[in-house]
Simulated assay, not measured.
Amino acid sequence: MFSPMTLRIVMGEDDVLMREGIARLLEDAGFDIVARAGDAEDFSRKVRAHKPDVAIVDVQMPPDRTDDGLRAATALRAELPGLGVLVLSGHLEESYANDLLGDDPQGVGYLLKERVGDVDAFVDAVRRVAAGGTALDPEVVRLMLGRSRKKGPIHELTPRELDVLGAMAEGRSNLGIAEQLVVTENAVEKHVSRIFRKLELSDSLPTDHRRVLAVLEYLRTAR
């Protein structure tokens, strides 16, 4: 796990007040903001130049103000293996999360901007993404849970196991899941083990790898 003091971040946000506010928040938490950008093209240039641990970017950026930031983040992620990417959005859009995640949810985050106000949770999301974890907005996860799913191993999971897997998709640890669901950590560990077994994830794989594969199966089925 990275220490926040070692984490280098490039920020991409066209709203000056929002950009400086987030940067100040992260600096106060001990992160190093190595560059700021107000449009998608400058953001891409600065990420390539500085090669930060995490790139944080707004979905809608100049020049087109559509999904320029998202497209830049997706391209940079493919170009720079190991780069953590955290995308911020002003409104809920499941397709944005799907486009960003692709076939590999490691080191990816998608959050609504309103989550920035919960400083501890936001800082934790940055750390998780830097460490190769996943940080999906709870509202996106809830939306995915409500969709009709394709047939697959996910259908074998109980409602409680789906709750656990949804929390895993948000990037929560077993302790975090236990606190969210108001159960013991031991109970969560048992649910996670059953999820791995039902999804046929081999015991020979590292636990962190199996968690990523389980989340990926969850997201694929929810699309």
Rank of each mutant, 00 (worst) to 15 (best):
L76W: 09
I177M: 13
I22E: 14
G38W: 01
I9M: 06
A40L: 06
A125M: 08
I177P: 09
A131W: 05
R194W: 05
Q180I: 02
E217I: 00
R36P: 11
V215N: 05
Q60V: 00
L213D: 07
V183P: 08
A214T: 03
N174S: 14
V164M: 08
V47Q: 07
E79N: 08
I9F: 08
P206N: 14
M1V: 13
A23Q: 15
F122P: 07
V129K: 01
K51S: 15
H209K: 14
D68P: 05
P52G: 07
E114L: 06
T207P: 03
R210N: 13
A135P: 06
E13Q: 10
A55D: 12
R8T: 06
D15E: 06
S173T: 15
K51F: 07
A130P: 00
K51G: 06
E13R: 05
P153D: 01
L101I: 15
V212Y: 00
E161W: 04
D32A: 08
F122I: 02
D64C: 10
E200M: 07
G117I: 11
R128D: 09
G30D: 11
L205W: 15
L80N: 02
R172T: 11
G30R: 12
D32S: 09
N98I: 04
E170I: 14
G90V: 00
A37I: 13
V164Q: 03
L76T: 04
D118G: 05
R128Y: 09
R147S: 13
Y110V: 04
H209C: 13
T158V: 05
G117Q: 15
D99M: 02
N98Q: 07
R210G: 14
V126E: 13
M168Q: 03
L111F: 11
G109T: 11
A72Y: 09
V119M: 12
P105W: 00
Y218C: 02
L111W: 08
M1K: 10
L219F: 07
P62F: 01
